[in-house]
Amino acid sequence: MPQNLIKLSVGTESPETLRQWQEYMRQTYGRTYHTTRMSPKRRDEVLDGGSIYWVIKGAIRCRQRVTDLEEFTDEAGIKHCRIVLDDNLIETAAYPHRAFQGWRYLAADKTPPDAKSGTNADALPEDMAMELRDLGLI
């Protein structure tokens, strides 16, 4: 069963600004990845179809499939991990999430569904849609 990760996208305002940042990464480095200090121990499960879910402005807003985990040691002798990502950024239903440091494993029952285009909730401003979801109205 695939294991998902969750990570804050610090400094990102929306899935679109994350998409723009990652496009810059692809143009500069030829691929999309995120470097982190700790490497997931459940490597095989993450690489078995797992995704990284991005928390943007207090809510999970999108995800990307993890395609590789590359461990490396920098010039100072410190170990790191590159989480290599699929270029396709998939928006999800907004799911409130508090701030945290680093990445975490994300339980399958805590993953929001992918966004459905054309629904009434998509036509609402995101902050209003989140508040209505919190109240259980949509």
Rank of each mutant, 00 (worst) to 15 (best):
R98G: 10
L85E: 00
I83W: 01
G58I: 07
N4M: 08
G30K: 08
Q22E: 06
V66Y: 03
A115T: 06
G11A: 13
L18Q: 02
T28M: 12
E45N: 06
L137N: 00
L89K: 04
E91G: 03
L135R: 11
S14I: 09
D134T: 12
P125H: 04
T67R: 12
M130A: 09
H34I: 15
D122K: 11
V66T: 06
Y24M: 15
A121V: 09
R63M: 13
V84Q: 05
G49N: 09
D86P: 04
P2M: 08
K79I: 14
R19K: 11
Q64A: 04
I60Q: 02
P125D: 09
Q3S: 05
T67K: 14
V55N: 06
K41G: 14
L137V: 04
H80E: 14
R104T: 04
L85I: 10
Q22V: 05
Y53V: 11
R65C: 03
D87A: 13
N4I: 06
F72Y: 15
I90D: 06
K7T: 06
D127Y: 02
K79D: 15
H34F: 07
D134F: 01
S9G: 09
R65T: 09
L47R: 05
T17Q: 12
G118K: 08
D87P: 08
L8F: 00
T73S: 15
E23C: 09
G49E: 07
Y29I: 14
A129D: 07
A93Y: 00
G118W: 03
Q3C: 08
E45D: 11
I138T: 05
F100E: 08
C81M: 14
L106W: 01
N120H: 02
L47S: 08
D68S: 15
H80K: 15
L135T: 02
A107D: 14
D134E: 13
L5Q: 04
K41Q: 13
L132T: 07
E23D: 10
T111K: 05
D48G: 07
I138A: 01
T119C: 07
Y24Q: 14
E70D: 15
S39W: 04
R104N: 11
P113R: 07
C62G: 03
K116I: 14
V10M: 11
T17D: 13
K110F: 02
L137S: 01
